[in-house]
């Protein structure tokens, strides 16, 4: 039994071992930081995938929850010296709560209209932060952003001299969120998400509380995204409205799973492993001369994927499924035509 699993999952096991050993193979801090960023995007993609891939609610503003989480934990750290680990969880809860408040009206919208509302919410939060130097009596310093105060290097303060601990923190977070996605996909909740993704009216007629399940889903996604926000703040020691609350990052975390394979466990990770290095390469090749080249490349790749492999890269390895999906597309065209 165990041997069988090992044989079946050889690639996965070898991959995991490689991931664990990576910082000791490539010792340069630059590379370790780059690896951390790749996995960070994979993690954010996984969080997005729970809402967008499993339940089909396409958000183009999901990084707003990362921003809220990062500001929450950093402000807590500045004012009360509470460990970022606890700040992380509190930030997650705040983000989750906000996602429910926002979801109550916006989940009445369907498809593209919902997506537009997510962009609007992201923009509104960014403008609020940019326009105010203080919020709720706390100093947020507008566009200047917040510096995470330097403390002793320790696990409790989530500050380290070396980059290696950051690598392992995000690696563990990504493994956990992948396991959660796997569990969700095979649970009642996951099947209900899939039903909502496929057809809301049919789902409702089968006893599924569509709005309720959407809210649960967005709470999970926002909570986990906020944890990623705190991580990013601790990694870069800085929170500002233009990065985590910007449109580019929100689009990037959606592109990872779309390219890799929406609704699959490994899709966002595959997407990040392919796309994020491209960003680094584009940056070194074109430098500051042409900014945002990587976004152009992402756009091209996304178009190719959407046309030739709508199930994402992961689906190319599952031949039978991808061919059946094509039949689905065809029959739907016939039906509608």
């Amino acid at each position: 039994m165990i041997m069988k699993i090992i044989r079946k999952q050889t690639l996965l096991i070898l991959g995991s071992l490689l991931l664990i050993a990576l910082p000791y193979i490539f010792k340069s801090p630059y590379l370790v930081q780059t690896f951390s960023i790749i996995i960070f995007y994979a993690y954010m993609g996984c969080c997005w995938n729970i809402l967008g891939g499993l339940a089909g609610q396409i958000s183009m503003g999901n990084s707003v929850y990362a921003g809220i989480g990062a500001y929450a934990s950093t402000l807590l750290f500045i004012y009360t010296e509470i460990s970022p680990w606890i700040g992380m969880l509190l930030g997650g809860l705040i983000s989750g709560m906000i996602s429910i408040l926002i979801g109550l009206p916006t989940f009445r919208l369907r498809g593209t209209y919902y997506t537009l509302s997510t962009i609007a919410f992201l923009t509104v939060v960014r403008i609020i932060i940019l326009a105010n130097r203080t919020l709720f009596g706390l100093e947020t310093r507008g566009a200047q952003g917040l510096l995470v105060p330097m403390r002793e290097s320790s696990l409790g303060t989530m500050q380290f001299m070396s980059k290696i601990p950051f690598y392992y923190i995000i690696l563990i977070m990504t493994i956990l969120v992948s396991l959660l996605t796997y569990y969700l996909k095979h649970s009642k909740t996951g099947y209900y998400f899939a039903a909502i993704k496929a057809n809301q009216d049919a789902a409702a007629s089968l006893g599924i509380n569509v709005t309720g399940y959407k809210l649960i889903c967005s709470f999970i996604s926002a909570f986990l995204t906020a944890l990623g926000g705190t991580y990013y703040a601790q990694l870069t020691m800085y929170v500002d409205p233009s990065t985590l609350l910007g449109n580019p990052i929100s689009q990037q975390i959606a592109i990872m799973p779309i390219v890799g394979g929406m609704g699959t466990v490994l899709g966002p990770i595959v997407g990040a492993v392919i796309l994020v290095p491209l960003q680094e390469i584009a940056r070194t090749m074109f430098g500051d001369a042409v900014q945002g080249t990587h976004l152009v490349i992402y756009g091209l790749i996304m178009m190719i994927i959407v046309v030739y492999a709508p199930g994402g890269i992961v689906s190319l390895f599952k031949k039978s499924i991808s061919s059946s999906k094509r039949v689905v597309a065809k029959t739907e065209v016939i039906q509608n035509g």
């Binding site: 899939a194 039903a195 496929a198 057809n199 009216d201 049919a202 007629s205 089968l206 689905v328 739907e332």
Partner: peptide
């Protein structure tokens, strides 16, 4: 329970 005139299977 109900069915729909225009069928709505969960296609995937």
């Amino acid at each position: 329970g109900r069915t729909f005139q225009i069928v709505k299977p969960f296609g995937d």
